[in-house]
Amino acid sequence: MQGLDFSIVPEYWPLIGKGLWWTVVISTASAVLSVLAGIGFALLVLYAPPVVRYPVRLFMWLFMGTPLLLQLFLIYFGLVQIGIDIPAIWSGIVALSLHFAVYNADIFRAGIASLDKGQTEAARSLGFGAWRTRIYIVVPQAVRGTVPAVGNMMIALLKESSIVSMIGIAELVHSAQLVISETYRPFEFYLTAAALYYGLNLILEAVLRGIERKVELSR
C-alpha cells in the first residue's frame, strides 16, 4: 500500500495548470455562446414563422434527447465524413455550447412566457414594434429573471466540460490523467483536479451572485 503524498503535485503543476487553463477557456467560451444561442433559440421558438420555428424545435428536441458525449463525437468524428473538419477545441466548444443552449433556451422561453403582459402592452402603446419590444423590454427582463436557473446550468457546464477530454483535449481531467500515467499516483492528482474544479465553482458562484445582485429588479 502506498500512502497519500501530495508533495509530488507541485512538480507537475505546469501540466496541470495548462489543463486548468483550457478548462477555463473552453467553459467560458461555451458559457457565453450557450447563453447567446439560448436567447436566440428561445426567440425563434416563440416568435419565428413556422418554417423556422419547427426545425428549431426539432433540433432542440433532438439535442435534449441525446447524450453530450454522443453529440461531441458526432461533431468531431462524424462531420469530417461529410467534409466538415472542425478542430478539436472548437468541436468541444460547439458541442458544449449547443448542448447547454438548448437547456438555456427552455429556461429563457419560460422566463419570457412568465412576464406580465402589461410590459408588452406598455411598450407597444409607446409605439415600439413587436421585435423592438422583445429586444428592449422583454428579453432584458426575462434574462434578469432567469439568472439563477441559467447560473445552475453554467455550473453544470463547467463540470461537464471535462467530457472534451474524450476527443484528446488536454483540459483539467485529461491533464491529470496524463500525469497519472507517468506517476501512477491517481488519487493525488484526481483529488487535485477535484479541488481545482471546486475552486473554479466557488469563483463562478461568486460571479453569478454578483450578476444576480446587479440585475435584481427590486433595486
Binding site: G118, Q119, E121, R124, S125, L126, G127, G129, Q141
Partner: peptide
C-alpha cells in the same frame, strides 16, 4: 407604431419597465 406614438396610454397597473 406611428399612430401609437401619437397616443399616450396610462394603465391601471402602471406597467413601468422595472429593469
Amino acid at each position: 407604431n406611428g399612430v401609437r406614438q401619437q397616443m399616450g396610454m396610462v394603465f391601471q397597473h402602471f406597467n413601468l419597465f422595472p429593469h
